[in-house]
């Protein structure tokens, strides 16, 4: 390694040390016995269950919305496309708290949408449904962006070839385009799920922070830090860290299995 390589390796080491320090500080905060009892407490188990249920439901909803939208953006040209793409990217860069305030105002009883929902007997705010709404809002944006790139990487002529072989556009999408974009779509789903699991700011505004009711893992960290129950907060933080690590590892493994040569667009010879 030359001097430039060494120089550039220093920030790398520094960043890795900081991350190890943060994780280590959390891990070493509790004794193994305290950690075990905090992990198995009723509140922690509730937060794990609430987080998994809401994030998986949000992931399903986000995929349902985002995958067709991403395909449309990757394949279709239409007026104002750049504007629509920018708009769909907005939830990704907006502070979640701001997104939450927006959702709150949109669905509040004083807004036409909120009033219409209330008239139909649908109440999304300050309930687990609100958690799903907030998580779907932020996860869908990441999924659209990643899935769009996945579809764009598949030559559209494969779908056209499928049409000439008797497949309708719908079947060509399901049997040709989805499998060919599968790796990118899996990455999109994992990133979306990770985003939904870690969602806090928008959830706080839309669903509130009610212990044992709208208490997801990030919310449990917040509530327990605020009330001085640091042990429970740390246990929930460690679970979030573990889940995030597993999800990131999954995306790495998916990427590693991707063949490097571009065989999909290769010619016959």
């Amino acid at each position: 390694m030359n001097w430039l390589g060494l120089l550039f390796a220093l920030p790398l080491v520094l960043m890795a040390l900081v991350i190890i320090g943060v994780v280590g500080a959390l891990v070493s905060y509790l004794s193994p016995g305290d950690l075990q009892s905090a992990l198995l407490s009723e509140e922690t188990l509730f937060a794990v269950g609430m987080s998994l249920q809401t994030s998986l439901l949000s992931l399903a909803l986000a995929l349902l919305l985002a995958v067709p939208a991403a395909h449309c953006l990757a394949r279709q040209a239409f007026p104002g496309k750049a504007m629509v793409e920018t708009l769909l990217d907005l939830p990704m860069v907006t502070p979640p708290l701001v997104a939450g305030v927006g959702l709150l105002f949109l669905l509040g009883y004083q807004s036409p949408v909120g009033a219409a929902l209330a008239a139909a007997g649908i109440n999304l705010l300050f309930s687990p449904a609100g958690i799903v709404l907030a998580q779907t809002y932020v996860a869908a944006s990441i999924i659209v962006r990643t899935a769009r790139a996945a579809f764009a990487s598949v030559d559209q002529d494969y779908a056209r070839m499928a049409w000439t072989l008797g497949l309708s556009p719908g079947w060509a999408f399901l049997l040709v385009e989805i499998p060919m974009a599968a790796r990118g779509l899996v990455t999109a789903a994992v990133l979306g799920w990770a985003r939904a699991l870690g969602e806090f700011g928008a959830t706080l505004m839309v669903a509130g922070a009610t212990r044992m009711y709208t208490e997801t893992l990030p919310m449990a960290v917040y509530l327990n830090i605020a009330s001085g129950e640091t042990g429970l907060a740390v246990a929930c933080a460690l679970i979030l860290l573990g889940l995030a690590f597993l999800l990131l590892l999954a995306t790495r493994l998916v990427d590693r299995d991707t063949p490097k040569e571009v065989e999909y667009v290769g010619r016959g010879a």
Binding site: G166, P169, W171, R267, G268
Partner: peptide
Amino acid sequence: HRRRLGYLSQDLHLFPHLTVRQNVWLSLAF
């Protein structure tokens, strides 16, 4: 997909996630 024809282009576009048999099967699936 409603026109009963065969189309073979320069790039062939064999579906890379399917074996040759599965590629042929797909053309008969519908």
